[in-house]
């Protein structure tokens, strides 16, 4: 095939099937909520026709962070807590890439907490999926910052001492928060809508997905699964528009305008019922990569000219060799 043919094929052949994004059989446990997140994201990639070679999934360490291995895109399975700065480096260097971050409640809210806070401020255009199952899974059942008080784990055999950290209120409290949403793994239709809205938001999209861990906290979300009234579905023409089937099950609904940050903070504080939907969105907040004019074309000539101009500032010329125009 000639190069020209290649170009033509590439121009018109941007259609991808689900299999084009499926990178292997996930090794998560049966019933793990991570599977639902993976399905939603692969569907998003297909529906948006994302070029696999221009899409990067970045993760830290933990069950959630195995995610990139199951995508057939570029992936970066990094180190514990540091997915965000790695993703930021990628985005700053290559702003045209689609960047996703998969992280867990330990990875994001504990060891990586500093990066999480600053990622909100940077507001770089990427989507973060916080796989929040309230427990450390990969290291086998230790308490996490989002474990409810009293949670019994291997490091808190008599129950967790501290009240859980609420990632939604924290995120909404940080300057430059621009997209905050919450989904649950057991309502895939709404999960997909939220992931899609997050992808389309230009800025740092923070999506917390409450996610079941059948291995270590099998009962955690049982009450919410059995009683749809304990889910508060946030609806809006600029937010989630549930299908009649979902709307028929989850009747505890509230119309919430994602532009209203005060109301978003109130909703975020609610732990029961669990709010599901888009809490806040502000497309007007500038992205750090735009402020820094990332992705500029640089030529060797630019670099040479820039270097010569700088060297001029420090140069001692031999007698009679000074350039015509002195600084």
């Amino acid at each position: 095939m000639t190069a020209m043919n290649n170009c033509l094929v590439r121009l018109y052949d941007e259609h991808h099937a689900l299999e084009d994004y499926q990178g292997g059989v996930p090794r998560w446990c049966n019933g793990c909520g991570d599977n639902a997140i993976l399905a939603s994201v692969q569907r998003l990639c297909r529906d948006e026709g994302l070029a696999p070679e221009r899409t990067v999934f970045v993760s830290g360490i933990g069950c959630s962070s195995r995610f990139p291995h199951y995508m057939k895109t570029y992936g970066f399975h990094g180190i514990h807590g540091r997915a965000l700065p790695i993703a930021q480096g990628i985005k700053m260097s290559r702003p045209e890439l689609h960047v996703f971050v998969n992280t867990g409640d330990g990875d994001c809210c504990s060891i990586g907490a500093a990066h999480w806070i600053h990622a909100i401020r940077y507001n770089m255009n990427m989507t973060l999926l916080l796989h929040d199952n309230h427990i450390y899974g990969l290291t086998k059942k230790q308490v996490s910052p989002t474990s409810p008080v009293g949670t019994r784990s291997n490091t808190t055999p008599r129950g967790a001492f501290l009240a859980a950290l609420n990632p939604l209120t924290v995120t909404l409290g940080v300057q430059n928060a621009s997209f905050v949403a919450q989904a649950v793994d057991w309502i895939p239709e709404v999960l997909y809508q939220i992931v899609s809205a997050a992808f389309h938001h230009r800025g740092f999209s923070f999506v917390r997905v409450l996610q079941r861990c059948p291995e270590f906290l099998p009962q955690m979300f049982e009450p919410w699964l059995h009683d749809p009234q304990r889910t508060l579905l946030l609806t809006h023409e600029d937010g989630i528009r549930p299908s009649p089937a979902i709307a028929g099950i989850y009747r505890n609904q509230q119309r919430h305008d994602p532009a209203d940050i005060d109301r978003a903070r109130e909703i975020a504080s609610s732990e029961d019922p669990i709010p599901v939907g888009i809490l806040y969105r502000n497309p007007a907040i500038p992205c750090y990569e735009d402020l820094r004019q990332a992705g500029q074309l640089r030529t060797p000539e630019m670099i040479r000219a820039g270097l010569e101009a700088e060297l001029d500032k420090f140069t001692v010329w031999p007698a009679g060799a000074e350039p015509a125009v002195a600084g």
């Binding site: 990067v56 970045v58 970066f76 990094g78 180190i79 540091r82 965000l84 700065p85 790695i86 993703a87 930021q88 480096g89 990628i90 985005k91 700053m92 260097s93 290559r94 890439l97 500093a114 990066h115 806070i117 600053h118």
Partner: peptide, 17 residues
Amino acid sequence: AEDEIAACTFAIGASYS
């Protein structure tokens, strides 16, 4: 960056891509 670790990992991300 917000700290030394972030500075290093940011650079790693930039290098990688």
